[in-house]
């Protein structure tokens, strides 16, 4: 007769856990990976695999050394590896990709306590460290389909350098030079729609980010359509500005975050020394997230309004 169990809440659990969410993100990243392989050849796949394998290996190793529980089963290191590879040019030396994985996993993620504890996006931060360290290799872009003619790494400008006259259709499909995962807006949008449909991300966040860039580049007399299709904007807005650990948890905060990202991206692109500003914008807003969190945006249940009953 001891069937009546007394236990503290919660009594119901959703089946969604970290690994399920991460699995969805990996699925959503696949179209962009395929686009990268189509445009930049097997080299793109090799770089991505190296990043994934080294991220998982570093995660396993550092958790082992710090005598903490093993967390490679939640696939978060896989996502970090794919996102890092997507932010690298296809012709990057392999050891630099491994070094980037080291920074992303060991320094940015695990030293601050592992998944959910890191204050900055690991892939973004690793990309910025590599960009600050190896300016030449990080900006040597391969021409799309260059691998078929036997010419592998040709230094050519990204569309961002001469954005006004770029062909928007090429930018949308991804037939341009750039980082592995950022070239095809179409493939990234497919992933974003899948994630919104699965309710992994809130579509308002990438829409606010991209919309802010559109409006501000338009106001500043740039070509707004090309600005939102080129560079890492789609990748950053869909997959990195929606990261759970490093962005505000409530919708109002998320929108402030996305708005700030859009403004900083536009300012760096139009007035800054670097042609691309998405990664810097996201990192800066990551750092502001604790401050955004302090803005009260959710009314506690039962809170009385000023001067009246609740």
């Amino acid at each position: 007769m001891n069937k009546l169990l007394v236990s503290p809440s919660p009594h119901f659990f959703t089946k969604t856990d970290t690994s399920a969410i991460m699995f969805d993100v990996i699925l959503a990243l696949f179209p962009a990976l395929i686009a990268g392989i189509v445009f930049f050849g097997p080299r793109a796949l090799i770089v991505t695999l190296v990043c994934v394998v080294s991220c998982v290996a570093f995660e396993w190793l550092v958790r082992k050394i710090m005598k903490r529980s093993n967390t490679i089963g939640d696939y978060s290191a896989v996502v970090t590896g794919v996102l890092l590879a997507f932010n690298l040019p296809p012709a990057i030396p392999i050891w630099m990709a491994v070094l980037g994985s080291f920074f992303a996993i060991v320094i940015v993620k695990q030293l601050f306590g592992g998944i959910g504890q890191n204050f900055a996006n690991p892939a973004i931060t690793a990309r910025i460290i590599l960009l600050a360290s190896f300016g030449t290799q990080m900006t040597t872009w391969s021409k799309p389909f260059g691998y078929q003619g036997g010419v592998d790494a040709v230094a050519s400008a990204t569309p961002l350098a001469d954005l006004y006259w770029a062909n928007p259709w090429d930018l949308f499909i991804g037939n341009v030079s750039g980082c592995i995962g950022e070239v095809s807006a179409l493939a990234l949008l497919l992933g974003g729609i899948y994630l919104s449909f699965r309710k992994v991300i809130n579509p308002l966040v990438p829409l606010t980010f991209i919309g802010t860039v559109f409006v501000f580049t338009w106001v500043l007399g740039e070509n707004p359509v090309n600005h939102i299709l080129a560079g890492g904007l789609m990748l950053g807005a869909i997959f990195m500005a929606t990261d759970y650990a490093t962005t505000p948890p409530v919708l109002g905060g998320k929108l402030i975050f996305a708005l700030g990202c859009g403004i900083i991206t536009t300012l760096i692109r139009v007035f800054g020394n670097y042609p691309e500003g998405v990664s810097f914008a996201i990192l800066l807003m990551n750092l502001l997230t604790p401050l955004i969190d302090r803005i009260p945006m959710v009314n506690p249940i039962g809170k009385r309004k000023k001067g009246g009953a609740a």
């Binding site: 600050a132 360290s133 190896f134 300016g135």
Partner: peptide
């Protein structure tokens, strides 16, 4: 291959 990050102020803090 020198890692320029370590010459920068951020690398100094690190």
């Amino acid at each position: 291959q020198p890692i320029g990050f370590f010459s920068s102020p951020a690398g100094g803090f690190f």
